[in-house]
Design a protein around this nucleic acid. Structure first.
Lengths: 340, 340
DNA sequence: ATGAAAGCGCTAACAA
DNA sequence: TTGTTAGCGCTTTCAT
């Protein structure tokens, strides 16, 4: 595995510019102590030569890394890919590169990913996805991240976690509340709520608010738990509607589940929204494209990612920051007043 | 900002074990040439001390990286996220980590990404997305990759590129041919083809085969060029149908464009497939969910990514490998015989 | 304002 | 089998 150096080195840039590598280094990093003329010249030459800093050498020599680790619950779920897109774009604007891992919602995998990132001296670690309602479950990760930040690293989460780091929090309660109120205003008083794993904070928040709003309006509420991935939401909804023949609406606590419900109802020949109204939460891109298009509460997903990245570029605050991101109700074709 | 955590160094492990750092290094990497007793002892001490290899030092010293770079044309397009999912999963199976960048189809950005990856000593570089029909346009990237591979790196592309490296090639001609034949068999003889930038090999291949098959069947073909992202495909299709009132089908050369066409037709009140049949290519997950569901040619997208990753784990062959991946026609609701 | 030189922690010849 | 040593490419004092 020998061969010609595959990358342009700082020494080559320096030589081409007729200066020492120290001066070249200063010029490239805009450090001052270098005449503007020289600095400008060096930058031009570096550009022409296609010079890129060797991050290993830089890091080893005491410089900082440009790696940002991003840990996703699920790599092929639009909710997460939208967030990832936001992170990647913001990172590139900040000259950072993103390393992606996925945890499949498995705490062990998540820990392993964090350790690997710490060992890589990643400049920042971003964890996207729901937290767990049981703080105990996140204890190890929390300790790991605390040590990491004490050592100069930066961490941020997207969602409500108990990880003691900066957080971008989609307003899940608000989102669920808006959708529930929409159903109430349409006149629905008998609603099936398709929920997910109660161990996830996202589920807890959305379900809590949904049930609260619906109950406050005097509606009958049937909650059905599924695995929150949408795989069995359609079947679950059909089962619930069998048991609750008077129900006029299905409120799924995520778009992924709502889409599964829509598919299930279509196959069963149930008219949406004529017979049953259906709603989701998140507003993934598909929500607008399916038919009937989905009434849901929209989160600016890629902005969630962007905000998280930005948080990690600011110095650590004395107490973890919380940036709440509001949802916005989007009424589309899947909801209508209940048939009378 | 505190300094880096007091990381345990190899020299400390060596000292504690009473051996040289060379022996310690060999022991830890299981390299042989070390007595089992010593090796075992060193490993135990390293474990006790919580030693973790400094990957920067290791890489700088000539050791190998575990980073695989993945350059995507577009980070938030389902076509690419599916591919990315395949790469990430296969990488994790091989204990590799994936670094994602996106080029926005801009050759300059792409070059920058490649350079960055080369500088990072990525073990492999995977480029996903269409190549350019003008080989000149890829010349710089080709040189860069050649030097990279000469230096021991591995590269692979997904799509037909002129980059001189291993390639996973979705059979774009075959895919377009199958869809075109499907339309012909249904009886369509007046078809609008929504195409993309002619500078992309994917577009060239799909359009060439589509037009060939349709023309061979004696059909009238109207080709409309768009930007291949789907942003203006809907508008373009409506315009073309205005000019070609006898057209009975719109064949979009990608699902992204087909979905845009479907949306445009729905807004214009055109019945699909009653009045106009619509087809796509790719079979992104949404294709099955929209309504009417989309007739298209399916590529196993995440497998494309997986195959590319696997190619990079094998040693370089004397000539670049080409792995052709066939498409499969999926007939859904968006196509029907033309109304007579 | 610029340069020389000492490492950063590790791997990989080469010696012993 | 083990140790010695020369870098990897860069940042950073310390001189000039």
């Amino acid at each position: 595995m020998a061969g010609p150096p595959a990358a342009v080195r700082l020494s080559e840039v320096a030589a081409a510019a007729g200066v020492s590598i120290a001066t070249a280094s200063r010029s490239l990093r805009g450090l001052g102590g270098v005449s503007d003329t020289v600095a400008e010249k060096v930058r031009g030459i570096a550009e022409d030569l296609g010079y890129v800093t060797n991050s290993y050498a830089r890091t080893l020599a005491g410089g900082s890394t440009t790696i940002v680790g991003l840990i996703l619950n699920q790599i092929d779920d639009p909710y997460f890919t939208e967030i990832a897109a936001g992170v990647v774009r913001a990172a590139e604007d900040a000259d950072l590169t993103v390393q992606i891992g996925h945890s499949t919602r498995d705490p062990h995998r998540e820990l392993k990913q964090i350790r690997s990132l710490v060992a890589q001296r990643a400049r920042a670690i971003i964890i996207a996805g729901s937290g767990y309602t049981d703080p105990q479950r996140e204890l190890q990760a929390k300790e790991l991240l605390a040590r990491y930040e004490a050592g100069g690293g930066r961490a941020a989460v997207i969602g409500r976690h108990f990880l003691g780091v900066d957080a971008v929090q989609p307003d899940n309660r608000g989102a669920a509340g808006q959708v529930a109120r929409h159903l109430v205003e349409l006149g629905h008083r008998d609603v099936v709520v398709i929920s997910g794993l109660p161990s996830l904070t996202t589920v807890e928040d959305r379900q809590g608010e949904a049930v609260k709003v619906l109950a406050a309006a005097g509606a009958r509420v049937t909650v059905v738990e599924t695995d929150f991935t949408g795989h069995d939401a359609g079947r679950a909804a059909l089962g619930a509607l069998d048991g609750e023949p008077r129900a006029t609406a299905v409120m799924a606590l995520s778009d992924a589940m709502a889409i599964s419900v829509l598919t299930g109802l279509r196959r069963a020949g149930v008219d949406v929204p004529g017979t049953i109204s259906v709603t989701g939460v998140d507003d993934v891109p598909v929500a607008e494209l399916i038919s009937p298009s989905l009434t849901t509460a929209a989160f600016p997903l890629s902005e969630l990612g962007r905000e998280a990245l930005l948080l990690t570029t600011r110095p650590q605050a004395t107490r973890p920051r919380r940036k709440m991101i509001p949802a916005q109700l989007v009424v589309r074709e899947s909801t209508a007043p209940p048939r009378s």
